[in-house]
Design a protein around this nucleic acid. Structure first.
Lengths: 129, 129
DNA sequence: GTGCTTGCAAACGTTTTGCAGACTC
DNA sequence: GAGTCTGCAAAACGTTTGCAAGCAC
């Protein structure tokens, strides 16, 4: 798993371990906390640098969920995100929900969408007053 | 048009004028430049404060287009955004392209999407190598 | 030993905040 | 005159960078 000319450092192993053991959407800061619980002096910038490389290698996806920090998760988990603008809750939905949009975008604009890399915002069932 | 207990200040008038005369997606900084061309000492923080209020009043939509600053536009312009991850280009697309997604989200999750408030990321026609 | 990788500290760009004075109503 | 709004300066926030030392190979 250690990649294209890269080296197997402990910071990287721990970061991957964190991504595997805590599935879901974690910010760089949360991942850092997780890694630091085992290796206290791994620096935040190291986390960012490695996440950047892992993103380039398509091992993780980075998603901007609304206003806060970006979140990261393993690329294997194919799903989209519905984020409520009011209460901030997020639900993961299967990729198929994007099929119609994907088809239209491709046919009409030649655009290939990446459903796991963005958040669909709106109002969840509980927040529609 | 001056709203619920608010006051009609010149900074606000100029900000709305900028939003009307320059349709499209403007960052807070660009809007500030536009306003400042007529009233040089309007401060950036005033722009932010007023955009925040206008967003709360649903007069403008704020959209995060990838990594840079958020962009703002009048809420009336109903359209979605396709942003290319590689070259950064953005195209606006009619809301109908989201019809299928909107229906599925509503039926299966009770979630009402707001197509103008998020960006669909992927690869544009020119960047699919 | 070579050179990729790291910690640290400092910079970055965007946005938010505290405060005293200015303005609208 | 009361209370909202503003400019200014500084802080906050998430993220990126430069550098010298450290480590994997």
């Amino acid at each position: 798993m250690r990649s294209r000319g890269g080296r197997a450092t402990s910071a990287r192993r721990l970061l991957l371990a964190a991504l595997v053991t805590r599935p879901g959407h974690l910010s760089a800061e949360e991942l850092a906390a997780e890694v630091q619980s085992r290796a206290p002096d791994v620096n935040l910038s190291t986390i960012y640098r490695n996440l950047e490389e892992l993103e380039r290698l398509r091992v993780v996806d980075r998603t901007h969920l609304g206003h806060g920090p970006a979140t990261y998760h393993l690329a294997s988990a194919a799903h989209g995100h519905l984020v409520c603008e009011k209460c901030g809750s997020m639900s993961e939905v299967p990729d198929q929900i994007f099929d119609g949009l994907a088809e239209q975008a491709r046919e009409r604009y030649g655009f290939v969408i990446h459903p796991n890399r963005f958040a669909v915002t709106g109002l969840c069932a509980g927040c529609q007053r």
